[in-house]
Design a protein around this nucleic acid. Structure first.
Lengths: 272, 272
DNA sequence: CAATGATGTTCCCTATTCCGGGACAACGTC
DNA sequence: GACGTTGTCCCGGAATAGGGAACATCATTG
């Protein structure tokens, strides 16, 4: 297995991944510096991506931003994610009775990716939104999802360097390991200003019809609005919604089929 | 200018573009057939894209589907599109009083791309959704957006082959040209089952603060629920929302700045 | 307004890579 | 177990992608 395979494709995505909500517009030199590629290479790649309408060039500033092809491809993923389709109406209903920001989150290689965020209108850009990737160790949903990964994956992540976002961020493998065990027992995770000062959140796992954890529901609020009494209230609501999603997710199987699949130790995460 | 520039990047997106809501999972041979690339090339490209987490492989079926990197990149575009951010709350409000499917749409090279669709929960998958691309000639929003493109672009599109979706689909340049002129006079467009039998829609343009058409609002309903009396009602509502979006879009400029920019004939579509 | 600096594009050349063909392997089906 | 289908691996040669440098463009500064 040679490392990166087709190098220009690898480089193209190295460049594309530099674009984010925080850095939506980037120039050639900037990209060159960030990726370590020569500016001539960046220039050529970026021009190619423009021809594919993956990027768009701002003629005035000569900077580039992601464009419609990226949007179209991303939308396909969104529509394919069963947990999104099923989760959206459930969480919308939940929103009517539950204040705060509600998010649906999946695990991906030591990080979490936000799939849904309600309410959607983000006048206040305080909270993370759809499509954003954040490391596991500092968020409630990250910790709950990591807690349910297999040993191998957990150990891999525990060894990684953990960035500190606030004074309360967990930064060592030992601390996180203890936290994960506690979480697995209680069945929910808490983040009290571990990612952002003034902001706390609760998360519960979402299971599929084969009892595998496929996602997490996350409720975020200003810390002072999330007393332990209130957490109990919110958790009840969240667990109910989690169960609703489980019931509606997955190809409905007979019990014998289910046993068969589980016996085969299917760890294939295809059906999120 | 050499045609495609970096060919492997071009080929990668040729492959990626084959994935859609209708064809979310594809295998190597299938992709090879569709793209005209050799199956060995497709295999290698697809493996590279898996390493980049743009695609994910289903171990059981050996087919591929778009995956989280695509979602993350697409989300950046979504958040960057000012007309989305501004349009979403406006159209949500509109939804409360207006039945039917409400969509926000932009023009892109002879096609339209749906940015938003309300209501979002699509139990009934009858209507087009977010991120979907459809040719201009057969939809209300496509016709209204095309009508406001410049001569050059209109003529380019008029010459293209137009696919027929129903008996009522416009399929010749002459017909479409007449239709566009009518639309430009009345200020709105209609599609009576030109794309799908039993489904009709109305569309109005959305202007930015420099009076350029940047998007369209589209309302779709079963044909029998869209009488001409009802169309007048809906149009009133739509035009009101369109104006609201215009007011809230764009960097607020002084009148002198505005004149300057318009004098410079800025056709740069960067600021959608 | 010339000089300077910073950024972006194009050209050229070579080492590398990537493509296509074919062999091989893994399934599923009859 | 034979066959058809599909996916992966291997290999050699042709094409191309990448880096360096020149050139171009724009912004800033004295």
């Amino acid at each position: 297995m040679n490392g990166e395979m087709l190098s220009s494709i690898h480089n193209a995505f190295k460049i594309l991944r530099e674009f984010s909500q925080d850095d939506p517009e980037l120039g050639v030199i900037e990209l060159s510096r960030r990726t370590g590629l020569s500016k001539s290479s960046v220039s050529r790649i970026v021009q190619t991506l423009c021809k594919e309408h993956v990027l768009q060039k701002n003629i005035d500033t000569r900077k580039y931003r992601l464009w419609l092809t990226a949007f179209e491809l991303g939308s396909v993923v969104y529509h394919e994610l069963e947990v999104c389709r099923v989760g959206l109406p459930v969480l919308k209903k939940m929103m009517e009775s539950t204040p705060g920001v509600i998010q649906l989150v999946v695990y991906d290689r030591g990080s979490i990716v936000f799939l849904l965020k309600l309410p959607e209108d983000d006048e206040a850009q305080i909270f993370n939104s759809m499509g954003v990737r954040v490391p596991c160790h500092c968020t409630a949903s990250g910790k709950i999802l990591l807690a349910f990964q297999d040993e191998l994956e957990i150990n891999r992540v525990l060894k990684e360097k953990m960035k500190s976002y606030t004074k309360k961020t967990i930064t060592t493998g030992e601390q996180l390991s203890i936290e994960l065990q506690k979480i697995k027992q209680t069945g929910y995770a808490l983040s009290r200003e571990e990612f952002k000062i003034g902001v706390s959140s609760v998360a519960v796992p979402v299971y599929d019809d084969l009892n595998r954890v496929i996602a997490a529901i996350n409720v975020t609020r200003p810390t002072q609005l999330l007393s332990s009494a209130e957490i109990d209230n919110v958790l009840k609501e969240m667990k109910y919604c989690s169960r609703l999603i489980t019931e509606r997710v997955g190809i409905k199987l007979s019990n014998s089929q289910r046993r068969q699949i589980l016996a085969a130790k299917v760890t294939n995460r295809w059906r999120i």
